[in-house]
Amino acid sequence: MGSDRLSNQMRRLRLDNGQMTQQDLADKVGVTRQTIIAIEAGKYAPSLPLAFRIAQTFGVPIENVFQYKNTD
């Protein structure tokens, strides 16, 4: 479910946005806190709609939240 090539800046963005908790972010984007934990740990790759909702919550482009490493 995770991806080795996908990294994210969610934790930093959360803390930069008024020390938002994982539960607060989960409530805003409509998922469970466990899912936010798994995404931040790189254990779960979110769906595209969820990734966009997370980016919109932080008010930044999606590329600022998630980075994909192309090793080819």
């Binding site: 479910m1 409530d27 409509g30 998922v31 469970t32 466990q34 899912t35």
Partner: peptide, 13 residues
Amino acid sequence: QYKVEHDERDILI
């Protein structure tokens, strides 16, 4: 107590 109990990750699992 939680707003969301079953999300996309739970459905996938």
